[in-house]
Design a protein around this nucleic acid. Sequence first.
DNA 1: GCGCTTGTTGAATTCACCTTCAACAAGCCG
DNA 2: CGGCTTGTTGAAGGTGAATTCAACAAGCGC
Lengths: 203, 203
Amino acid sequence: MATRKTRTERRADLIEAAQRAMLRHGPDGVLLNQVAEQAGLTSGAVLYHYPDLSDLLLEANQAGMERFYSARMRRLAGLTDPVEKLVVTIRSGLPVDADDADVRLLCELGGLAGRNRVYAALLTSLFDRQVSMYQTILETGSAQGAFALTADSLTLGRNLVALEDAYGYRIVARHPTLHTDEAAELILSYARQVTGSSLRVAA
Amino acid sequence: MATRKTRTERRADLIEAAQRAMLRHGPDGVLLNQVAEQAGLTSGAVLYHYPDLSDLLLEANQAGMERFYSARMRRLAGLTDPVEKLVVTIRSGLPVDADDADVRLLCELGGLAGRNRVYAALLTSLFDRQVSMYQTILETGSAQGAFALTADSLTLGRNLVALEDAYGYRIVARHPTLHTDEAAELILSYARQVTGSSLRVAA
DNA sequence: GCGCTTGTTGAATTCACCTTCAACAAGCCG
DNA sequence: CGGCTTGTTGAAGGTGAATTCAACAAGCGC
């Protein structure tokens, strides 16, 4: 029997439980009882807080996306060197390993997006925000003379995010030789070329 | 009442029906009756040919992947100019529009791959085969003096396939401004840079 | 045209999940 | 401490899907 919690606490628990359940069973295949099990509750209790399961799943996925995006921004916050910013940001766009929860969830949603307009819109927005993030890094670095960009920042930003995304899928699918380090190096090879920088952090 | 067909014909029908049903309902959410409906049969008839639905789904997805890959190879077959090969191949890796059946199915499977080792292996294999395809194009072009590659062909091939894949997801998710033409141009911008070629087909 | 194999249906069964709800436990506020 | 709100359970009922199977139709070999 689960300990009684306040409305707010329980809703936060349920969002995490829903994320875990979706990782196991997929965002559209997940069952009410599976979420309840992850939360250590009965299905009735879940329904008490979220009368419609799809509302809970949507909130859980939005929360997952925001966590991913804000973690990237937070890592960026302390840095000033454009080269360091770019290198760190490329890393933070990749899953740490094949079991990375945030990226696995994003990949699941990517599949769904073809037939679910809501998730499609959310992912599109996330993509565009990440592109903007890169554009800011690239243009700032360019203005400071650290980068000599070979194309407009929109093109470069889109390609950088695209590479991250695609390698995220490969890593999550457990490619036997293409792990996080290799993926980062592949993206860096592109970044070096289009920034004209060796991307070595100044001493 | 469906007309009676031979074993082979019906199995081919069922594979197509399964593909359509998966496009509507997702590869892991699809129901036996939905496949039957697409085939114009009852669930019993489907089960007669495929006692286990997951076998049918697997065959349908393998068939989808092979069709995608072999269509790319076929488009390549008649060409001799390395520039033309590269340009055509980049195009053939993108969905024609957001409703492109083959790519939509591949995207669905990409999401699944995080928790299904079989589909993960199939997609990994498809990725690697496409990388090899690009490597051949790039190295042949390089040997013929059409390209001056800026990195090893494995790096470039992987990045080209990665870009295709990622933009496939964006297009399928109906990005408002990033359509097939724009995606092709983004990938071409990368290809130009790493081949040192304008990628204009010689007259 | 007869009989056998192959393909298909429709109904019956079973099972899993969702949904609802009456009962009850835990705090909180008077 | 007594009543009220809030959170939770467990069981009951309803629904829908998978599965099984007896019956039947369509062609093929003879």
